[in-house]
Design a protein around this nucleic acid. Structure first.
Length: 442
RNA sequence: GUGGCUGUAGCUCAGUUGGCAGAGCACCGGGUUGUGGUCCCGGUUGUCGUGGGUUCAAUUCCCAUCAGUCACCCCA
């Protein structure tokens, strides 16, 4: 068999990287639970028609089918696709289980998602998202939109990663403003403005004219709005200064003020109102979030989301929601690529119990058992090689302690192979310093 | 999905104007008859991403393909 090769866009980490990933996931999860979000996992597949409601993203959906499915039979597996985010499955789940859920319903969901994109650094076809959402029945209070950045701020701050900046906007501001200046296709205008960073003001003006039918004055006004950015409510004055009025615009400004002020009170500098932010899936109807990892801005957002009022509705029941999702795989991929994350050892093992000779392996096994019973991750040396070799086995893996069973009734000894210090110890009592018990991620 | 660049040892990379494949690090053995790391001596790295084609001869040239990366697209 020839050597297997990777599959494009489906990353597989090393054990050390996986330990870091698990650490990161644990921290994120515990922050989510600290805010009272309940755990949920949904199936990997959704009916295709559900997934395709988003238009453009449809090209990215992986469809599943049975190898020997009957192409002429009734629609079965081939009507299913892998979910490409966690919000759409969640909306479906809420509709399906509305009777069992208490509203407002707060849940987190940490799962893989799949998108058939062309991969490059920080872009994958299979990746993990850590998602929180809050949905309510009929109406959703706007303060939930202000809560999202707080959770994310806490979660990401608990990790050994560079600081982040959450950029917030509100689609009502854009849409209200565009309508206020007389544009009739706010969607097109939004798409044009979104390219500001990439093609510059002149390019956007051109695009606004060609795709949204904007006059020179209208384009200028849209650009002026997009250039507004402030870490506090002062953005609202800047918007008013543009002299455009529309009910939707006022509503959006009010909501965004609240998000920004709440965030500023909780953690200054975390959030910034940035009126050029337009992206995200097109089901967003109000607040939208994007998150830059400082120093890695060019790789795009590592955490995005927003408010959606129309994603989940059945008959006359409506479930507006707001959610945000951490791109865990992108975050890790970027930091791994930069060598910016490390772990103190490649295995969970804290203690390696040396084996004096194979006849005495049972003695080492029993030491290991005693240590494990007190929660100390321990392995027994794979061979009774010279102690130098056994120490090196530990050293190469970053295992901090080697345990030597005492010969002929002499006490056992444990050696810290980093310092070389070796002391007598009893397996039923010795405990490593707290910081050595588990691998340290930094 | 479109286009560009790249692919040589576990890692970082040399190299062959087409003629038996190299260095450093890492790894293994010894110096050191039961305690590693430093040091010294010695040793192994490999379908030259994969499959075709041209050629007496291809790692080198050509085509395809896979993977990585960049831009577009989209987005975590």
């Amino acid at each position: 068999m020839s050597k297997p090769t990777p599959i494009s866009g489906f990353p597989e980490w090393t054990p050390a990287q996986r330990m870091i990933e698990q650490y990161v996931l644990d921290r994120i999860r515990s922050t989510f639970e600290l805010y009272g979000f309940a755990p949920l996992e949904t199936r990997a597949v959704e009916p295709l028609d559900q997934l395709l409601r988003k238009g453009e993203t449809s090209k990215e959906v992986y469809v599943i089918r049975r190898l020997h499915g009957d192409p002429d039979g009734p629609a079965g597996d081939d009507a299913l696709g892998l979910h490409f985010d966690l919000t759409v499955p969640f909306a479906r789940y809420v509709l399906e289980n509305a009777g069992k859920l208490a509203f407002p319903f707060r849940r987190y969901q940490i799962q893989k998602v799949w998108r058939g994109e062309r991969p490059q650094e920080g872009r994958y076809r299979e990746f993990v998202q850590a998602d929180i959402d809050i949905v309510d029945r009929d109406t959703l209070a706007t303060h939930h939109e202000a809560e999202m950045p707080l959770v994310i701020g806490d979660a990401l701050r608990s990790l050994p990663i560079p600081p982040v900046r959450i950029q917030v906007n509100n689609r009502k501001i854009c849409e209200g403003f565009y309508r206020g200046v007389g544009l009739t296709d706010p969607e097109a205008a939004l798409r044009a403005v979104d390219k500001l960073d990439k093609i510059g003001p002149a390019g956007v003006a051109e695009l606004l004219a060609s795709t949204a039918g904007a006059s020179e004055a209208q384009a200028k006004a849209c650009l002026a709005l997009a250039e507004i950015s402030a870490p506090d409510a002062s953005f609202a004055d800047a918007v008013r200064g543009l002299g455009v009025s529309h009910p939707l615009l006022d509503e959006g400004v009010e909501e965004l003020v609240r998000v920004v002020e709440t965030a500023a009170a909780h953690s200054p500098g975390l959030c910034v109102a940035d009126l050029r932010i337009a992206r995200g899936l097109d089901y967003y109807t109000g607040t939208v979030y994007e998150t830059q990892l400082l120093g890695y801005e060019r790789f795009g957002s590592v955490c995005s989301g927003g408010r959606y009022d129309n994603l989940a509705s059945a008959g006359n029941a409506r479930f507006p929601g707001v959610g945000i999702s951490i791109g865990v795989t992108r975050l890790l991929g970027l930091l791994f690529g930069a060598g910016a994350l490390s772990v103190s050892r490649e295995v969970p093992t804290c203690v390696l119990v040396a084996v004096t000779n194979e006849e005495l392996r049972a003695a080492s096994d029993s030491v290991a058992g005693a240590l494990r019973s007190r929660g100390i991750p321990t392995e027994v040396s794979p061979s009774a090689a010279k102690f130098g070799k056994q120490i090196r086995y530990a050293q190469r893996r970053g295992i901090p302690y080697v345990w030597f069973p005492g010969a002929d009734g002499a006490p056992d000894e444990v050696k810290d192979i980093r310092s070389g210090e070796q002391v007598a110890a009893a397996a039923g009592e010795w405990t490593p310093p707290r910081e050595d018990l588990k691998p340290l991620v930094s």
